[in-house]
Design a protein around this nucleic acid. Structure first.
Lengths: 339, 339
DNA sequence: CTCGCCGGTCGAACCGGTTCGATGAACGTA
DNA sequence: TACGTTCATCGAACCGGTTCGACCGGCGAG
């Protein structure tokens, strides 16, 4: 079932069918109706491949999927879900590329084989080979997260620095003077993940600003690592009374570790952080945290990308989000000091 | 940069380049080397659209993404991740289709526009319009989960009936006599989600088999609903001493609800179920549960689908998985009865 | 020496759309 | 009445691959 068959049955030429479908030239109402009738009868849909070949547009966006072996978080799932939905709203599909190695392999498939019109990158590093590759190739892309020098790219990101600062500020107001940061894993930090680095920066600055003594800790992305890091925190500074976590996958472990060390939340120890709302609500007591607006971020990413496709020469636009800290139950006044 | 340019620079015809690339006819080593040199120099990659158009194969698999508005679970994320990776291993990409309405809309894009060579469906209902549509269209597909009459389709699924039975069996051995089932949401149950229905069946049968009094409860897919359902369970049968949950998103809420009602886990109340390992490990005490082998399921789905693409006439193959119940800390002997 | 076969290569058709330039009919205007 | 427009439509070229049949030269067998 192709456009030629439709044309034949409607008694017109192939180009007329094409114009009737695209609306790029005027077609008489009578002809248009006849063509539409044939299309409806045969349930015709134009071939995506043929259309892509001749028009040069695939109506598909690429998403470079987080590297293999990393522990997926809910945040990522929400990104994907909202990307797919937002893209569908504009008539685009989303193609997933497995990121192997530094992620350029998967990109090659997307870009060099021209499978997609534009790409969305996530899990961004401060110095990201994929971003450099796409920028050099002149291929349209946006990032969820931003590189170290983000002025010339388009992105949507959380302001980790400010969010961690808000958490520290909140804890300081509650009287806490010794606070720990639970960061992402050593592997991700070493790889230069921007969220891990910006969180660290924000934490150190905020501690200085609020006169708080801070210790920082890398932590694997699972419950066992979270449980483990509590011990390390209390060794590093036994007087620690609060923590800020940007590691949502470790959250359950943090709670368990605190309980194991006899710290009740929030009476003995306060917990705050940045997390998907689902995780924040799953733990008891519920987590006082900045909720990651993952759905909004996915939607914005698609909008930025389509904007870029429509007007390639427009200056880069960025969206930096700073969701408020939702006050739940895991942070309270600092316990009376023993000093 | 197209195949004609490569041919010109290598001093051969376009078809020779094509055959050198595909290996479908023999090419002299000298010619092959010359062509390869040009390809390497220009970093040439054939256009996916052109290839798809002429060969009729897209090297892409479609995945119908869970309907909008549903709460995504970790299980789904793991499916997607493993699908993408497994597909990449075979040289395939994965295209996501947003499921709107009953999901046929998104499928139309995939199938009628011939964007993919085959499709993977998840979130299967006992009576699933998408499955009927694909079967009627003769389009290659596999399902993660299975319909009510699954003999003629290809699928990989968890044996919910058996897994729930294992949980009940385990609880019965521990002396529990009054057990609750926490099922998925009313919306999903009404829609005919197979996991919700088979879990219910398995639970009722197992209760009869082990002489256990069971109550069953639908429960929304979030922590608040989980907290809420505990009250309903204790109203329905105040003597309940254990539950089986197939609702991983509600898990944190179940724990909180039990604590709110003064039930300690596992001393006063035992919890078992089916969940992604990550959630099972995140709660305290860790959940005694059958861990969903999501990664394996995704991989198997891809294998089944590629098998189907390679040999369309082979009889349907199924894989029914029954992972063991991991004994963790949330289930213990039934408390002494008050009777 | 000649014939037949086979490995290697070429040219052309084809996949199913899009798009440009041309064409013809209808219509308003000078 | 002749001419310039505008509208609707057509034909052909093109996008960039794959694949089939044909062709050519060299080699082994008869």
């Amino acid at each position: 079932m192709n456009i030629g068959e439709i044309a034949r049955r409607a008694g017109v030429s192939r180009s007329t069918v094409s114009y009737a479908l695209s609306g790029k030239r005027s077609i008489s109402p009578a002809t248009r109706a006849r063509i539409q009738a044939v299309i409806d009868e045969l349930d015709y849909q134009p071939s995506a491949a043929a259309r892509a070949l001749s028009s040069g547009q695939t109506q598909t966006l690429g998403l470079v999927f987080p590297p293999a072996g990393s522990h997926y978080t809910d945040m990522q799932l929400d990104f994907i879900g909202s990307l797919v939905e937002a893209a569908a709203g504009f008539g685009y599909d989303v193609l997933l590329a497995a990121a192997v190695g530094d992620g350029r392999q998967g990109l090659r498939r997307l870009v060099a084989e021209r499978r997609v019109d534009g790409a969305v990158l996530m899990e961004i590093r401060l110095d990201d080979a994929r971003v450099d590759y796409l920028a050099a190739a002149g291929f349209p892309f946006v990032t969820i997260g931003r590189v170290g020098e983000p002025e010339h790219t388009r992105w949507v990101d959380l302001d980790y620095t400010a969010l961690v600062r808000s958490c520290v500020s909140h804890l300081a107001q509650l009287g806490h003077r010794r606070v720990a940061l639970v960061n992402r894993s050593e592997r991700l930090f070493r790889a230069g993940y921007e969220s891990a680095h910006r969180s660290l920066t924000g934490f150190e600055r905020a501690c200085a600003e609020y006169g708080v003594v801070g210790t920082t800790h890398l932590c694997g992305d699972d419950a066992a690592a979270g449980e483990d890091v509590i011990g390390r925190i209390l060794v590093a500074d036994p007087a620690t009374t609060a923590l800020v976590t940007v590691n949502e996958a470790a959250l359950g472990g943090l709670y368990r570790g605190l309980a194991a060390h006899g710290r009740r939340i929030p009476q003995d120890f306060s917990v705050t952080g940045i997390a998907a709302g689902r995780w924040a609500a799953a733990v008891t007591p519920q987590l006082t945290a900045a909720d990651v607006p993952a759905v909004e971020m996915g939607r914005v990413a698609v909008e930025l990308l389509l904007e870029l496709l429509a007007t390639p020469d427009a200056p880069p636009r960025h969206v930096l989000l700073t969701p408020p800290v939702s006050l739940r139950a895991s942070a309270g006044p600092a316990p009376a000091s023993d000093d």
